[in-house]
């Protein structure tokens, strides 16, 4: 008879809020990320969800995969809807129309709903300082409508509106840096996360919801369908994104940067790129361009860490 040793994984809460029966594709790491975020946030949570994959897979009327109060309104306004929920609860509790209770408000949207069409509403909500956590599930394209490029699609990726052609090698713009845009709002908490690192993700969600004011979490959510990888590799590919430095895991707490998954030496980006169908067409030259860019951005991140950590020590 074996004895069960506690691990962070077998000690996770058994409560589920994004339930089985949802219609996400096989191996969808975004669905996993949603499951983990809601596990971390717990029962006293209201979710506002943008139009997109997660909305479609979870709410075919009259059925729902949500074991939480959940509202979907439109594509670009999730941050505003969540602002309204927060403002409504605040007013009702202050006026004694509802009993005082700590209810967390979580807004969720994809990369299109966040860095493209929802950017204005998000900026407004962060600037106004609502007490909510905004989670961007970034699968790097408009997957729900059929893998069209977004401003979060990385350089070189082939999508249906940035196809790898004879003349143009897929997406020719660099991924918009959403976490930095959130940081520029000087909100209490910004973090990147990836469900390949579930414990890191859960800790960040818990930190985000426990801090008063707005928080922003940007979750790289591997999409086997859109990235053209086998469904069983979704976790592995997410891990490679982190270990190559393409998607570093860090947090910015009250302006202070901290890398939460440290890597002594980054793996070459090639290891990440070549296992994905969307990058299959990339030449050595393009791969080295990407490598150079990743090195630069990672260096910059390290500088921000050093600079802000330095300030922290001075205090």
């Amino acid at each position: 008879m074996k004895t069960k040793k506690p691990t962070p994984y077998n000690q996770l809460s058994k409560e589920e809020f994004f339930l089985s029966g949802h219609r996400a594709c096989q191996g969808c790491a975004e669905a996993l990320a949603v499951r983990l975020v809601q596990k971390a946030a717990g029962r006293d949570t209201i979710v506002a969800c943008a139009t997109g994959c997660m909305e479609i897979v979870s709410s075919p009327f009259p059925f729902t995969s949500w074991n939480l109060p959940w509202i979907h309104v439109a594509f670009e306004n999730t941050a505003a809807v969540a602002s309204g929920v927060e403002a409504g609860l605040k007013a009702l509790m202050r006026k004694g129309k509802l009993p005082q209770r700590d209810i967390k408000v979580i807004a969720m949207a994809g990369d299109g709903g966040t860095s493209d069409i929802g950017l204005q509403a998000l900026s407004g909500a962060l600037e106004r300082g609502h007490n909510l956590t905004y989670v961007c599930y970034d699968n790097e394209a408009y997957m729900n409508t059929g893998i069209q490029r977004s401003s979060a699609t990385p350089f070189g990726a082939s999508t249906t509106t940035s196809p790898a052609g004879k003349k143009v090698p897929g997406q020719i713009t660099w991924k918009k840096n959403m976490p930095e845009i959130a940081v520029a709002h000087q909100i209490p908490y910004v973090a990147t996360a990836c469900p390949s690192y579930p414990i890191d993700l859960i800790q960040k969600v818990q930190k985000a919801i426990s801090k008063p004011g707005p928080a922003y979490i940007h979750i790289l959510s591997v999409c086997p369908t859109g990235w053209r990888i086998p469904s069983n590799l979704a976790i592995k590919v997410g891990r490679l994104a982190v270990r190559t430095g393409i998607f570093p895991l860090y947090e910015v707490e009250d302006g202070i940067y901290r890398i939460t998954q440290k890597t002594s030496k980054l793996l070459p980006v090639k290891e990440y790129l070549t296992i994905q169908g969307r990058f299959r067409h990339l030449t050595e030259e393009l791969i080295s361009q990407i490598q150079e860019r990743v090195n630069q951005e990672y260096e910059l991140l390290l500088k921000k860490v050093a600079m802000t950590q330095g300030e922290k020590k001075e205090e």
């Binding site: 505003a80 809807v81 309204g84 929920v85 403002a87 409504g88 006026k95 509403a121």
Partner: peptide
Amino acid sequence: LDAEFVPVESEHSALSVCIGASAAGART
């Protein structure tokens, strides 16, 4: 007046805020 005044960044968000608040049970 004891109310939340949400100075939104667009009319699109104005009505979206009202939807969220109304769904939470508030008069908007």
